[in-house]
Structure formats: C-alpha cells, structure tokens
Amino acid sequence: MTIAGGIILIMLGAILTWAVEFDLAGLDINVVGVVLMLGGLVGLLFGIYRIAMARRAVGPIDEPVHRHEVYEDPATRRTTVYEERRRYDEPPL
C-alpha cells in the first residue's frame, strides 16, 4: 500500500465515522470507519517504512568511482550530406 492509499483510507474512515448519519441493520458505520482509519494508518506507516529503507539502501562505499570522459575530435567526425533532386516537368496526377 502506498502513502496515498493510506491517506485515502484514513480520510474515508473519518468521513464514515464522523460525517455519515446512516444506519444499516447489523452494521455499524462508525466501526467500519474506525477500521478503515486503522488500516489506513498501518498502510501509511508501512509506506513510510518502505521509503526509508529504500533510501537507506546504498551500494558499497569502498569501491572507487571511475569516470570516463567522452571526447570526440571534431576533425574526425564524419557528416553525410543528402541531396534531393526533383523534377517538376511531369503534370500532377
């Protein structure tokens, strides 16, 4: 679950808990809202934990960084020129 999904579940649960005045037989909307808020909170914390672990995962630091510069001599560069010749003697179709 992502952070956005957790926030959406928390908002939906809060709406069901405090803003809805609807009664169903055998189902308490307030309890459903609280369960959604708790699930959203768990998902939010898990998403934050995953991001923290992904940022902490770094490759080995002891290896040197090798940088290669790309240099191309302008005199050795080859260019191709295409020439198009058209004849307008023929009538259009």
Rank of each mutant, 00 (worst) to 15 (best):
L36T: 05
E84V: 02
T80N: 08
D73V: 08
I51D: 15
L38Q: 14
I3W: 09
A19S: 05
M37F: 08
P60S: 05
P64M: 05
T79Y: 13
A4M: 05
M53K: 05
H66F: 12
I3G: 07
R56Y: 09
V65W: 12
R56Q: 10
G47P: 05
P74Q: 01
A57C: 03
V35C: 09
T76P: 13
E83H: 15
L93G: 10
P91M: 11
G26Y: 05
M37V: 09
L41M: 09
V31G: 09
R77T: 05
Y49N: 09
G40D: 15
A14T: 02
L41D: 06
A19C: 06
E21D: 06
I10D: 13
R77G: 07
T17Y: 15
E63F: 00
V58K: 05
V58L: 02
D89L: 08
A52I: 01
V35D: 13
A19P: 00
I8E: 06
T76Y: 11
L41T: 07
R77Y: 07
V20I: 11
T80Y: 08
N30Y: 01
T2S: 12
V65A: 15
I15A: 07
A75T: 07
M53N: 03
W18C: 04
I7Q: 00
A57L: 02
I15K: 04
L27D: 00
V32T: 12
V35P: 03
L36Y: 08
G43S: 15
L36F: 06
G40E: 14
V20R: 02
I8A: 12
G13N: 11
R56K: 14
V58Y: 01
M37S: 14
G33C: 08
P64N: 10
R87K: 06
V58H: 04
E84K: 01
L27N: 01
T80V: 12
P92M: 08
V58P: 00
W18E: 14
A54W: 01
Y88K: 03
G6N: 12
Y88I: 02
N30E: 05
G33F: 10
A75Q: 08
G47M: 05
R67G: 13
T80F: 04
A4Y: 03
H68K: 10
V42I: 10
T2W: 02
V31A: 10
M11S: 15
F22Q: 12
F22T: 14
A54R: 12
R67F: 11
E84Q: 03
R55T: 03
P91G: 11
E90F: 03
H66C: 10
V34D: 15
I10G: 07
R50Y: 04
